[in-house]
């Protein structure tokens, strides 16, 4: 038997094995279930809306907020500096944006807690790093940051800084989202993170 016959048999056999495997071409989780469970139970994976508000108010460039709502909802208003990855397309889009971004932190949010926590497990299952969930989602953001009022008589230093932070982030939220659509779009374009592509080709 000569080399090319041997090579043919090897390739053909592996081809048959591949044809029998449940390959789909779409992504699958690549971590061990036990590791994913520890990630899912990780207390540090949640950030409060106050923490998120601080990132917004200080325009922290090492943090990127990811809005998981539909693009229609995102275009109406969103937390300043966030990018939109609709939850139902998260599996296809997120790895291209998140992987390979060094020490950047990604905070997921949706209206409630549901989509963001699902997306968190998906991201961790796909081995993406530095993922966090904004606890309570936009409902909590509105409740805490946007509707923040100080009603007491005396304010402690800590309360004051918290209140100032909420006020600053809340004002930014209102101002940017009140801009006319054309200017808003310009703002988003400037913030847009393009998915990195590998250049390809042959010969």
């Amino acid at each position: 038997m000569n080399t090319r016959e041997k090579l043919s048999i090897i390739l053909l056999s592996i081809g048959i094995i591949l044809a029998l495997l449940p390959l789909t071409g779409s992504r699958s989780f690549t971590v061990k279930p036990q590791n994913l469970l520890s990630d899912a139970l990780d207390e540090k994976s949640w950030v409060t809306v106050d923490q998120a508000a601080r990132f917004v108010a200080t325009e922290d460039s090492s943090v990127l907020l990811i809005d998981l709502r539909s693009s229609g909802e995102f275009n109406r208003f969103n937390i300043p500096g966030s990018v939109n990855i609709p939850y139902d397309r998260f599996i296809e889009i997120a790895p291209g944006i998140i992987s390979g971004s060094g020490n950047m932190k990604f905070i997921l949010y949706s209206n409630g807690d549901y989509d963001a926590n699902n997306a968190y497990v998906i991201a961790k299952g796909l081995k993406l790093k530095n993922i966090y969930v904004m606890k309570g989602g936009l409902n909590e953001w509105f409740n805490t940051v946007m509707n923040s009022r100080f009603t007491g008589e005396r304010i402690s230093a800590r309360e004051n800084s918290l209140y100032e932070n909420r006020k600053r982030a809340g004002t930014m939220f209102t101002e940017i989202n009140s801009l006319p659509d054309s200017l808003k779009r310009k703002y988003y374009e400037a913030k847009h993170v393009a998915a990195k592509k590998l250049d390809g080709g042959c010969e």
Partner: peptide
């Protein structure tokens, strides 16, 4: 190759293929 594929296929302690399809009810 056969051994590796079989270990992977018969190991129940791992995730199934096609994350999107499996996550569908959550959409």
């Amino acid at each position: 190759v056969v051994i590796l594929v079989l270990t992977r296929a018969l190991d129940t302690n791992h995730f199934r293929t096609d994350a999107k399809k499996l996550a569908e009810p959550s959409f």
